[in-house]
Structures are given as structure tokens and as C-alpha cells.
Amino acid sequence: MTGSTSLLARSWKQKQTKIGTAIILVVLFIAIAGPWLAPYSATEFVGPPFTGSTSAAPLGTDVLGHDVLSRTLRGGLFVVWSSIAAAIVAMLIGVTLGLLAGYRGGFTDGLTMRGFDIVLAFPQLILVLIFVSLIGPKAWLIVLLTGIALSPGVARVTRGLTQEVAQRDFVRAAELMGMSRRRILWSEILPNLSSALLVEFTTRMIWAIGVIASLAFLGLGPTSDVGNWGLMINENRVGLPIQPLGVIAPVVVMAGFAVGTGLIAEGISRSMARIEGARTS
């Protein structure tokens, strides 16, 4: 029972993990295979705007008369990949700086944490907004900035855990063997954080979905003809009273993506609490 591999195996026993994974797989399938399955292109007119369900367009049409089903199938990729990528960026920045700050302490620690104070002074969404506002909604920029906006939380958790682990005596023992700082961080401390960081990753992904979907909803996602789930919700909400499907379809997949991730996060953290609990008693 060591490391995160067995944690994954254990968390699989939690029903939350199983349900979450099933939901995520469906959403991923829609986002990735969707474009091939879509009956129409994203810009084809299949009827008058805001037509309800018909045999040709089972989910009806949107504000411009495009097929809602096709746009739902084609518009998922951006939100899905960029949320995952942003969470990875947040982990890379947060874990690296959190480890260094937690282990080296002193000046490094002070500097890093003050740096994060600045990031934390912006509401997450607004940090991304100000950069995107004049530079333009480039996908890489959105991913990078969302990652930066989410990294202080990761760093804070990593730093706290690192401090806790670093004051344990096996780290002293490694220091007394003359082991290099990098090796101590990498092979003595990091393995002790792996389970907690796995939970952290899934949690940050939920946040990332929130930020990126909100940006898309505000119309600040990367511009393309295909559109995306967030933008669809924004465009079609004026037709809510007559054609709610244009909003409901993207809302369902997006909520599914977020809730699925949330369930997996919960499953992992529950099984982690169990392992760690058994260990300390």
C-alpha cells in the first residue's frame, strides 16, 4: 500500500469514483468523438432559429438556426482539453514552488508566498480577463493564466505538507547522509505527498472547468465557427422560454464534466483518508 498507484486502486472501490469515471468517459467521448458523429456542420442552417425538437434536429435549432445536437457534439473539445491542461499547469507551478518554499523556508518561502499574495488579490476569473482583454483570447494564454490563477492554492497545500514532512526525522537522516537537496525533495519528500497531490489535481480541475467555462460563457473563449458549450449557453439563453434545449444540452454535458470530476476527487480523498487514518493509528 504505497504511493499513488495503490491509492487509485483503492479509490476505485469507492462508488463515487466509479460513477464519476463513467460520467467523465461519456463526456470525453462526446467531446472527442463528437465532431465525427455530428449529423451537420456547426454552421449549417437546418431550420428557423429556436425551433424545438424535430426529426431532423432532435435537439432543435439555436439562435441562428444551427443544429443544437451538432454544435453540442462539436463544441466540447476546448473546454475539456483546456481545463485539464490548466489544472496541469497549476500543479506544475504550485507543486514546484510549494516544495521549494516548504523545504527551504526563509527567504525563498517569503518571496514565493508574497508572490502568491499578488495572484490571490485578483478574483481568479479577473486575472485571466485582464490579460485576455487586450492581448486577445488565445487558447494557450487562457490555459496558462488559469493555471497561474489556480496555482496559489496548490502551492499552499504543497508547502504545508512539505513543511510537515520535512520536519520528520527521515529527512534529517537523509541530510546526515549528505544527500543533495534536490534528491531529498524528489525521492524522500515528494512520494509522501503523492496521494494528497492527486486529490489536489482533481479538485483544481473542478476550479479550472469553472474559470474556463465562465470565460467561454462571457464570449472570451478562442473565437471559432464551431463555438463551444459556454458560448452556446450564452447565445441561446435569449430563447430559453421557447427553445430551452439549446441551453439545456450544453448545460448537461458541462455539468456532467464538472460533477464527474468532483465525484472522482471525492472518491480519491475518501480512500486516502482511510489509508492515512489506518496508518496513524
Binding site: T2, G3, R168, D169, F170, R172, A173, L176, E188, P191, N192, S194, R279
Partner: peptide
Amino acid sequence: IQYVFQNPYGSLNPRKS
């Protein structure tokens, strides 16, 4: 010069055999 720590619950890395 080798050192043995007070608490063996903290001086061995729980992630290593």
C-alpha cells in the same frame, strides 16, 4: 558519525520499504 532518532515512527520514510 551516525545518528539514531528518538521516534522511529518519524525517522523511517513511510513510502519506502
